[in-house]
Design a binder for these strands. Sequence first.
RNA 1: GGACCUGUAGCCUAGCCUGGAUAAGGCGACAGCCUUCUAAGCUGUAAAUCCGGGGUUCGAAUCCCCGCAGGUCCA
Length: 556
Amino acid sequence: MNVFRDAVAKLISDETGIPREEAERHISIPPSQDLGDFAFPCFSLSKKLRMAPDRIAVDLKSKISPGRFFEKVEAHGPYLNFFMNRAWMAGKVVDAVMVEGKDYGSLKSKGTVLVEHTSINPNASPHVGRARNSIIGDSIVRLLRFHGYKVDAHFFVNDIGKQIALLVLGCRGRKLAFKDMLSEYIRINSELEADPGIERDVFALLKKLEDGDKEVRKEFRQVVEMCVKGQSGILYELGIRFDCFDYESDYLFSRKTGEVLGRLESSGKVFVDAEGRKVLNLEGFNLDMKSPVLVLTRADGTSLYGLRDLAYTVDKLSKGRNIVVLGEDHKLYFRQLSAALSLLGFPAPEAVHYSFVLLASGKMSTRSGNVVLLEDFMSQALEKAEAEIRGRKKARFSKQLARSIGYGALKYHIIKVSPEKNVTFDWDHALSFEGESAPYIQYAHARIAGIISKAGHSKKGKVDYSLLKTSVEHELVKLLADFPDVAEKAALQLRPHLIANYAQSLADCFNRFYHECPVISDDHDLSTARLVLVSAARQVLETSLNLLGIEAVRKM
RNA sequence: GGACCUGUAGCCUAGCCUGGAUAAGGCGACAGCCUUCUAAGCUGUAAAUCCGGGGUUCGAAUCCCCGCAGGUCCA
């Protein structure tokens, strides 16, 4: 809720008698600031009042007299345009940012949220498509923490599926490290393709595992641990951390899967299909599948992913609010899971789905080796960042600075587009440090930091906001005023790309300001006013970047 | 065959939920701006059948219906 918008809505509501919410809904932003800060289009009133919208606008204008918070109202065709009192607005907004600091825009909510993201199979080095999950998930974690929630980030480790069994089989009798896993994974999969007989060995191995064979369990754990360590190490380097790694096998061995299966069976919806598998009947859930079921076990009695995930999700849900980040390929599966959960008396978690990252050469697939590895993307980004930093005068190279910039660019590239959109990965775009990129935003932040440190920390005395007269200064104020709305919406809709877009426009606005308005000057009062304004902008840029998991650097 | 998502200048995207004034950015192209707070920047120019067709509405990129194309799923 934007207080300024709200004030305008109240005014219109008082004057016309339409409900405040309705007025609020209609209020728009004029295409150019010269036309005002807010507008009320009068079309909707024209039927009720039996008057042309232009006349209504003129009429309303004559009835409304300027007040403390706006300077003038103008009728512009069918629009009633409001011009805010710039000094008053600037004071309100900038003071709020300076007083609240890092918390400016936070809802200061209470509560606990469990976010599960990434949860990739523990097999090999992740590719950039998978990284989309991690980056979106991590940003959601940050966003919710910012708003005051206690958030636990969880990673569900699929340590018991067919793919991992295949990998265990491939690793047998050899000393392999994490870096060897990708080629091993590709090798064993192509071997399987050539000799489908291997599948029998895989299932036999899984059966042994589920029956509790100690040796086999140890064997699995060794491979899984190595992979989880390798994968989480890469994500850790990127600044993506988890609070919990939850192992599928724990749910199996603690008999929780058995418990859930039992509860489902007592609902009378479980039957044994023609292949001898236990299957959950999901008719009546509108699932748009040929046979609406969720397969729970194999014919040999071993569990399938759906059953283990169900046990896991029940466990998660008992801890409170749940969010899970999933690829678009899991959309239907997630609806199946939700249906099964409702049979168990649980609400579905909130799901965030994202589409795949494609390559010009086609789809990414670990199994076929057609991938861009996250690791490679990271090292390319670091290399480029290092080269850029070394070519500059102001910045001194450090590994940390290169990380901030390189990884920032990487994350921003992925998070800035809406999750439902497919993206085609290409190196030139991905490694761009100009335009719509993290370095662009970081650069704006660094410039402000430079100004602040050059000006010294003297922000003494009262600030005369009426000195901020230029159009771009007013724009900057309005953008800062928007931040709480953006941060709220991004959290409510679980859409971090809104923050990315916002940060870009704030940086953009600041850069225009920077070229137009010198902050440090002989005019002490103007200097002070501008200094507070840019300090507020710096704070909001930093907050925005942090919400995306990107560092706000002070020199670059 | 069915379901969901996407289609906006040469290229990448925002806007779509909540309809409103000349459709907003970035890359690329072209023309400019560094003895003044960081040129990873700024200013300007050219560039768009908002996938196509219907409909609803005073008004549609935005809502509804029918197509087309791409992605995903229907063990």
